[in-house]
Structure formats: structure tokens, C-alpha cells
């Protein structure tokens, strides 16, 4: 920082910063899908619970976390904007209606639990309960569509890969939500969730295979990337994480199952990144090298991220430690 001129001439420590930022953007997206993913999953599972007390426990489980989790999406947008502004501009304006569908779903999902708790009469809670479910199902579905369109470079909103990936992401959030809730609940509810987890996992695996198959069928340009070693390795990793998740869920090893759910999410996002690279926006013809910001700004942002992201992990560690373990009687949203 002492000599701004040096920061403008070459990348910090000669690091491949453009590639690192490509990785970072997808890492942040994966953090969002993993963390807010379990909030979405809890919303989907909310639909399967009739009992008021159980519903209350589901909301109490995500209460302290969801807002922080959703900020990963804000940081994703910010990081993409800061490092690859032309990608941010092209991608978001091209998927105009889809972006607002995601935002609308997130508004409904975010408001619903807050509203649900404001009044305790049946009509009100039924209505906001439904809103919570709908928001929690549509947000990951639209996000999945967005991710699929990003990879394939589709210019229309609806395509076969988009629909299949959308459903796959919904199933994945349920897998994630079950793993999270089994950490946060006890008794019958915790046991019942096991079945939900197995079903969602089965659906996810089928949908992921279908998604990759549909991309293969629709996008000839991506066929060689789909069959490349890293992508195939990630598909195998997905199967391994799925096996670990199923076994850990059966054996009631809650943290292992939660970790395996994280593995599934990160593997999916890594597949997306692997299919794109070295391109970053196929429809706009932008690659990581052409879309990256100039050296000075990139260096400054890298310093900022290197200092701040470890702090973010500290905040999350403090939060998740304070609220570790099953929710206690009397705790509510």
C-alpha cells in the first residue's frame, strides 16, 4: 500500500489473480448455496410438518442464521461486480426476469418467518407458512435455472437443462436442510427427517445425472468439457459424498452428514465452474482473462478480500458456536 505505483504494474506477488478471483466467486456462490441452502431446505421441509410446535422448531432452527447466510449472495454479487464487471452486467441483464424472480422469491422467503411470528392466529400463520414454503422452493429453483443458463450460455430463460438443474438444486437444498435440522432437533422429529433425507438424496442424484445428460444433449460445445477428467472426478466425488451422507444419516452421525451435504454443494458448484473455465460468460464471449478488472483494482480487491474473508469466517464461527446444538425448549424464531 505504501507505493500505489507498484500495485498498478503487476499482480500482487505475481499470483494468477484472475484465476483466483474466478475461483473465489464460485467459492462464495458455493458458500451461499450451502448455508442458505439449508434454510431453503428447512422451508421445503416445513411443508411436510403439520404440528404447530414442530413448525415452530423448524423456524427457531434457522432464526439466528438465515440473514447472515443470505449475505453470501450479496457478497457473490459484489465480488462478481468488482472483479468481472462486464460479466456481472451481461449476465444479470441477459437474465433480467429470472434475476427478479430470484429476488422476489428471496423477499417472500425472508419476510415470511418474521411475519409468521407476528401473530398467532391460524389464518395468518397458514398464509405466511405457505409463503415461506413457496419462497423456499422457488428461490433455489430459479437459482438453479440461472446457474444452468450461465453454463450453457442460454439466452432464453427456460431450457431443458435449466429446468432440470433448477429441480436438482431444490433437491440438494432439502438434502442440506435435513442434515442441518438433524443437528438442531431431537426425538421423533429428528428420526422422521432421516427418511426425508434419503428421499431427497435419491432425487438429487437422479436429477444431477439428468442435468449433465441434458447439457450434453443440448450443448455440443460442452461435450468435451463434460467428459474431461476434472468434471468426471467431481461427478465421482458427488457419488462419494452421497454415499457418506446416506451412511452418516443412517448411523446418526450428524456432523458427518452435514459435512457430506457441504461436499455435495461444493462439488456441484465446482462442476459449474469447471464447465465454464476458461470462459466466464460464453454467451457474451468473455473469458476470465478478458473480463478481469485492471491490475491496480484487482490488487486492491485481493488485499481487501484476503483481510476480510478470514474475519467473516470468525463471525460465522462465533455465531454458529453460540447457537450450536439442538434448539432448547422455549427458544423460538
Amino acid at each position: 500500500m505504501t507505493d500505489p505505483a507498484a500495485l498498478a504494474t503487476g499482480p500482487l506477488f505475481g499470483l494468477p489473480l484472475a484465476d483466483l478471483w474466478f475461483g473465489l466467486v464460485f467459492f462464495i456462490l458455493a458458500m451461499f448455496l450451502f448455508l442458505d441452502g439449508f434454510d431453503f431446505g428447512v422451508g421445503a421441509l416445513f411443508a411436510t410438518r403439520e404440528d404447530d410446535d414442530e413448525r415452530e422448531r423448524l423456524l427457531a432452527a434457522i432464526g439466528p442464521f438465515w440473514d447472515g447466510n443470505e449475505v453470501w449472495l450479496v457478497v457473490f454479487g459484489g465480488a462478481l461486480f468488482a472483479a468481472f464487471p462486464s460479466v456481472y452486467a451481461n449476465l444479470f441483464s441477459r437474465h433480467y426476469l429470472l434475476m427478479f424472480a430470484i429476488l422476489g422469491a428471496l423477499i417472500v422467503r425472508g419476510l415470511a418467518p418474521e411475519m409468521y411470528e407476528q401473530r398467532h392466529d391460524d389464518g395468518w400463520q397458514r398464509w405466511w407458512g405457505r409463503a415461506f414454503i413457496v419462497g423456499s422452493l422457488t428461490a433455489p429453483f430459479f437459482l438453479g435455472m440461472f446457474i444452468a443458463n450461465w453454463v450453457t450460455g442460454a439466452t432464453s430463460i427456460v431450457s431443458l437443462p435449466a429446468l432440470v438443474v433448477g429441480l436438482a438444486v431444490v433437491a440438494l437444498t432439502v438434502v442440506d436442510g435435513v442434515a442441518f435440522l438433524r443437528l438442531k432437533t431431537r426425538g421423533d422429529l429428528r428420526d422422521d427427517l432421516r427418511t426425508d433425507g434419503h428421499r431427497a438424496l435419491g432425487a438429487y442424484l437422479v436429477l444431477v445425472v439428468a442435468a449433465l445428460g441434458s447439457v450434453y444433449a443440448v450443448e455440443p460445445a460442452l461435450r468435451s468439457a463434460l467428459l474431461s477428467v476434472p468434471v468426471l472426478a467431481l461427478v465421482l466425488a458427488t457419488l462419494a459424498f452421497a454415499g457418506a451422507y446416506a451412511a452418516a444419516t443412517r448411523a446418526d452421525r450428524y456432523y458427518v452428514a452435514f459435512g457430506a451435504a457441504a461436499g455435495l454443494v461444493f462439488a456441484l458448484v465446482a462442476i459449474v465452474a469447471g464447465l465454464l473455465y476458461p470462459s466466464i460468460d460464453r454467451a457474451a464471449g468473455l473469458t476470465v482473462e478478458t473480463a478481469i478488472v485492471s491490475t491496480l483494482q484487482l490488487n486492491l480487491m485481493s488485499i481487501g478480500a484476503a483481510v476480510l474473508l478470514p474475519l467473516v469466517f470468525v463471525y460465522f464461527a462465533v455465531l454458529y458456536t453460540a447457537f450450536s446444538g439442538p434448539i432448547e425448549a422455549g427458544e423460538s424464531y
Partner: peptide, 22 residues
């Protein structure tokens, strides 16, 4: 313009949203 928005997310929004839970 993107840089300040990214830093806002990482430095400020993360701080408030996590500690808000507590």
C-alpha cells in the same frame, strides 16, 4: 463502483448480519 459494493458486503453486511443473530 463494484469494489466498494464488494467490500461493503464483506466488511459491513457480514458483520451486522451474523452478530444480529446473536
Amino acid at each position: 463502483f463494484g469494489g466498494p459494493l464488494a467490500l461493503e458486503g464483506m466488511m459491513a453486511f457480514m458483520l451486522e448480519a451474523t452478530f444480529l443473530g446473536i
